[in-house]
Design a protein around this nucleic acid. Structure first.
Length: 438
DNA sequence: AAATCGTTCAACCGCTCATCC
DNA sequence: GGGATGAGCGGTTGAACGATT
């Protein structure tokens, strides 16, 4: 008697997942978890096999996934772990929270393996390749050779550090650097400015969320279904009551989300710059504090421009911020960002998120077209824009929404720590010249 | 502008492992 | 102990996309 197939293959859809399917799957899993993958598609109303659902969830929809290319540190760790574990991608992935075995495997095959070969290292044995000495490089190759030498130096550093990494147990903070603020994908709501999903900028499941496994997630008692593709559902959620007693960091021990990182850094800096904020300083001391606490600047302009979600988001933030002091990880669940499709290079190439290909890095950067050389207009020009919509829609001015960090930080053109057109580093409230906190 | 080639990565396939009965 | 079953792993595929000709 042969093994029962995972599905009957009849009437089962294959190929790329649609947004609607993602929505159904996420909604179902967040509501019910998964007890048995085979029945998930039936109960969720999907014409997919359970295996496909599991893969889609673990490799793409899971709310703790990082997106984007592996960082240099992650790449080094992958190389190091591969030298020890071989092609045990799941074991390697287990050391890189937020990364999937599939993702690492793909990255290995498309980037790292080639890099190692170029460096004269056998990607299988991690030993030097036995090759005849290469002829003297042509002048055009000298630059590349210099690049190789640099990579070899890095690899040597890696080898030197291998023992140390292993002895120290490779703490998460050491081995998995946080995604930097500029790497954050735009939220669908932010990118579209008014809550409708923009396929052009809606990132794939770019998420700021604690590390977890799908099995851990399934253990949560989730509230009412939240169809994540409709961002309103997220924003409307009562995140304070979602995890009334335990923060996400409790749910996922030892984890710290990117949001945690941002939040703590922001608070630390805000504390240093606005020491009297907590005591209810006078406007002269912290001009934005009271206004923010009462009604963020974004709220009113948002209303006038039809962006009521800003107020909702600000309300969620305030609710969170004024909580009992439990882990800010609670809030991390507010940002699972689902996309209609995976982001393509064209979507990111003009953004801070774009990470050039290796070969592109080897080329001298193309000189920007004239119009791009003046991305930052005089501050006065920016200040002449009077509405939030004008500021937001301006490709040449400050990209901040002009109000609280809540919007700014999720707007992909923003620099987290300070706005591109001012040196304000008061991340709790703003980073742009619209604000008065400078 | 069109054709061709190379790259990337989501998704699939087939296998093994773990667990249950 | 052995069969049935579900889950997970690693290799492979193919569509989409970018680069080049």
């Amino acid at each position: 008697m042969g093994r029962q197939p995972c599905c009957d293959k009849v009437g089962v859809k294959k190929g790329p997942w649609t947004a609607e399917e993602d929505q159904k799957l996420v909604g179902f899993l967040l509501t019910h978890g998964h007890c048995c993958w085979r029945v998930v598609p039936k109960l969720a109303g999907l014409l997919r096999c359970g295996k496909s659902c599991r893969l889609r969830w673990t490799n793409y929809l899971r709310p703790d996934l990082k997106r984007g290319l592996l960082s240099d540190d992650e790449e080094r760790l992958v190389i190091d772990l591969h030298a020890q574990l071989g092609n045990r991608w799941s074991k390697i992935a287990a050391q890189l929270p937020g990364r999937t075995d599939n993702e690492i495997k793909n990255h290995w095959n498309t980037h790292i393996r080639k890099k190692l070969v170029r460096m004269g290292i056998d990607p299988v044995t991690h030993l030097p390749l036995q090759e005849p000495p290469a002829p003297a490089p042509a002048p055009a190759e000298q630059q590349e050779q210099s690049h190789r030498q640099q990579e070899e130096l890095q690899l040597q550093e890696l080898q030197n550090g291998r023992e140390l990494i292993m002895q120290e147990g490779a703490g998460e903070d050491d081995i998995t650097p946080m995604i930097q603020p500029h790497e954050i994908m735009p939220t669908a709501a932010a990118a579209s400015n008014c809550g409708s999903v923009s396929s052009a900028h809606a990132g794939s499941a770019s998420v700021v969320s604690p590390s977890c496994s799908s099995s851990a997630v399934s253990g949560v008692e989730w509230p009412e279904p939240m169809y994540l593709l409709g961002m309103d559902g997220i924003m409307d959620a009562d995140w304070g009551s979602l995890f009334p007693d335990t923060g996400a960091s409790d749910l996922y021990p030892g984890s710290r989300s990117h949001f945690d990182f941002f939040y703590d850094e922001a608070m630390a800096e805000a504390d240093s710059r606005l020491p009297s904020l907590a005591e209810g300083a006078e406007p002269g001391d912290a001009p934005e504090s009271k206004e923010f606490a009462a009604a963020p600047r974004s709220a009113e302009p948002a209303a006038s421009t039809g962006c009521g979600n800003d107020a909702k988001r600000a309300a969620v933030f305030r609710s969170h911020e004024s909580g009992s002091g439990s882990s800010s990880s609670n809030f991390s669940f507010a940002f699972p960002i689902l996309a209609e499709t995976s982001p393509r290079k064209k979507d990111l190439v003009n953004t801070a998120l774009y990470q050039p290909l290796e070969k592109e890095c080897e080329q001298p950067p193309p000189s920007p077209p004239p119009q791009q050389q003046q991305l930052e207009p005089p501050v006065s020009a920016f200040m002449e824009m009077t509405t939030e919509e004008e500021r937001r829609s301006s490709d040449t001015g400050c990209c901040c929404c002009g109000c609280c960090w809540f919007d700014c930080s999720w707007w992909y053109r923003c620099q987290w720590w300070r706005c591109g057109c001012c040196s304000c580093s008061c991340p709790s409230f703003c980073r742009c010249t619209w604000c008065l906190c400078t």
